[in-house]
Simulated assay, not measured.
Amino acid sequence: MSITSSPGFDQHESLAFHHDPETGLRAFVAIHRKRDGRGCGGIRYRPYSSEQAAIDDVLRLSAAMTRKAVLAGVAAGGAKSCVLADPSRPKTPALLQAMGQVVHSYGGAYVCAPDVGIGTEDLAVIRSVTPHVVAVDHPAAPYTARGTFRGIEAVAEWKLGRDRLEGVRVAIQGAGNVGAQLARLLVAAGAIVTIADTDTAKADALASELGARSIDPTALLDAEADILAPCALGGVLTRASVERLRVRAVAGAANNQLADPDAGRALASRGIAFAPDFVISAGGLIAGEHELDGFDESAVHEHIDRIRTTVLHVLERAATQSITETEAAERMVAERMGTR
């Protein structure tokens, strides 16, 4: 098992393994940076092929949360937890309460939120044990979708020369909470939407609801569209998969869409614009931070809508400096944190 040699390691403040034999809880919690005394990030619950795979994931995700918070203007650093789901054992209230005890043991230095495999009902159980939880009363998905929608508007303006989304073709990967909310916003704006999900019945139902089109998930990366919006698990963009794309831009809410930096360079070499996920998917984090300080819906929306401007700044900087969009965004993070 390796930590410092993991591709996700970025001078993290801490990484801890928590085990509760009685409930079967096995979880890694990573704090990348604390800002204003805390790091924020979701609890991911999924099967992992190994503990090393979970370590790699939690390190990457927590570092991305710091970048997301800095560029979103949120007074927090990044953290994350990954629970190793056991397919032979159900996700029980007792296990969730045990995870709540883990969160509580950080004394507010780790504030948790939803992620893959952990929804609002799960968080409500966790909140029965610790107050260091957000997105129970204000679920994150609509806010994440709103920020992603604003980012897509920016990409359409920059890459397509479009000041409206009417007629813009968007292929969405993932029909879960965020993907579905994003699809609704896009259709309402007049975009032409294609949806794919490994749960084909879910994709078909959403497409039927919206008058959109659903396709086989294995065909989505080959679909002709203006914008690809990955809204499922990360790592979808590799050098090989980028070569298959028939789009002019990628802008979606999934975390860690680039499998490695080479994928970002492949996008740039093909002239495909990319909205870094840690910029465009910050809506849920923004809403969660507003919960900690007193929630006002209009203020939250105003804050989230600034994502459009940030995405434009990233695209402009990448073009001006002849670097990838991820490199441009990371330089902005370093400047704002005073590390360069």
Results as ranks from 00 to 15, higher is better:
V333R: 12
S2H: 12
S62R: 00
G284Q: 09
T310Q: 08
S241A: 11
G100N: 03
H313V: 09
P114K: 07
R164L: 10
A188M: 04
A334G: 04
Y45Q: 03
E224K: 06
I323H: 00
P217Y: 06
P87K: 02
D293I: 14
A30L: 05
P217K: 00
F278L: 07
P230A: 11
A191E: 00
D305T: 07
H290P: 12
I152R: 01
A76G: 05
I3G: 08
A189C: 08
F274D: 01
R60Q: 10
A268T: 03
V168I: 07
G100V: 12
V155W: 01
T4H: 07
R164W: 11
H12G: 13
R150P: 04
H18I: 13
P7F: 09
A75T: 03
Q52V: 06
R35T: 08
S322F: 09
L228G: 10
D296Q: 04
A328M: 06
A183V: 04
M1V: 12
L95N: 10
L237Y: 02
G24W: 06
L71F: 00
A196S: 11
D36S: 14
S49V: 15
A219S: 15
A318Y: 05
S6I: 14
D204S: 13
V136W: 00
R89C: 07
E302G: 10
D122F: 02
L292G: 06
R26A: 12
A124Q: 13
N177E: 14
Y48F: 15
V236E: 00
L220N: 01
C82A: 15
A240S: 14
V168G: 02
A94Y: 03
L165Q: 03
T324M: 13
D293C: 14
L186F: 09
G78H: 03
E243C: 11
R331V: 13
E289M: 14
G264S: 12
S322T: 13
H138L: 13
V247G: 07
A263H: 05
V103E: 01
D36P: 02
E121F: 02
I272S: 05
D10W: 03
Q97G: 12
E209D: 09
E166V: 14
S128G: 13
E209S: 08
D36R: 06
I152M: 05
T148H: 02
S2F: 12
L84S: 03
V311M: 07
E157I: 15
T324Q: 07
L96T: 03
P261L: 14
I55W: 00
G271C: 09
G176C: 10
V314R: 08
K80G: 05
E166Q: 04
E157A: 15
R150I: 03
P261C: 14
G147F: 06
R67W: 00
R150C: 10
A219P: 11
D305V: 05
T194N: 02
A329Q: 01
L210G: 01
K68C: 11
T326R: 05
P276L: 10
L165H: 00
T92G: 10
D260R: 09
L267S: 01
S2Q: 15
R60K: 13
E291R: 05
D137L: 11
S81V: 06
P217I: 13
K34L: 15
G284V: 14
G174W: 04
